[in-house]
Amino acid sequence: MIRFENVSKTYKNGTVALRDVSLNIEKGEFVFLVGSSGSGKTTCLRLLLREETPDSGRILELGRDIGSMRKSRVPYLRRNIGCVFQDFRLLPTKTVFENVAFAQEVIGRPRSTVDAQVPQILELVGLADKMNNLPSELSGGEQQRVAVARAFVNRPLVLLADEPTGNLDPTNSEQIMNLLDRINKTGTTVVMATHDKGLVDRMRRRVIELDGGELVRDQLRGVYGIDDPTGGHS
């Protein structure tokens, strides 16, 4: 599903963000991406979204080499990838319903589909009763659930989450984590970059650790800290 083959990325200002990273993620996996600040987690996700291209190496995603993909094909790739960010990125002038519907409208889904699927997905994230509220009228946790709904409404094959619980308290983090877990159980591959030790340790999922742009650990059923030897290499 996702495959990095000796991927290196240096930004224009000379910062080396990734160094010869190789990894393979199967369909339906749940992967935590951990590492200290600046280790290259966000860069990985930006490469998967094709907001950046690798300088060397290949990235295969959904069966395509996305490094050499034509620019005009990128939107169609992104329709199969949902994403969630630390800062929610909701549109402040649109209601909860409109925010989620927007993701369908702008890829040309007909009104009838939108009207049928948006309430359904809002039900899933537990916000059916706040459909007509503006984001500013919601708590942080609720806003992030709207963002998850927006990312998932088009049923992507891959869901990328960059520190989705970074701005949330433990209770709300837990809720978002459960939501991502449920989405993963539908068969969606989830890649989540995080600093949340508690979550990673509790979930016991695959953990990929980066350090200074290099892959230093890839552990099935892993934990956040490096000093914990539980689990095996894949």
Partner: peptide
């Protein structure tokens, strides 16, 4: 957001 969700 449009770019993110794959609007052409």
């Amino acid at each position: 957001v449009m770019k993110l969700v794959g609007a052409t």
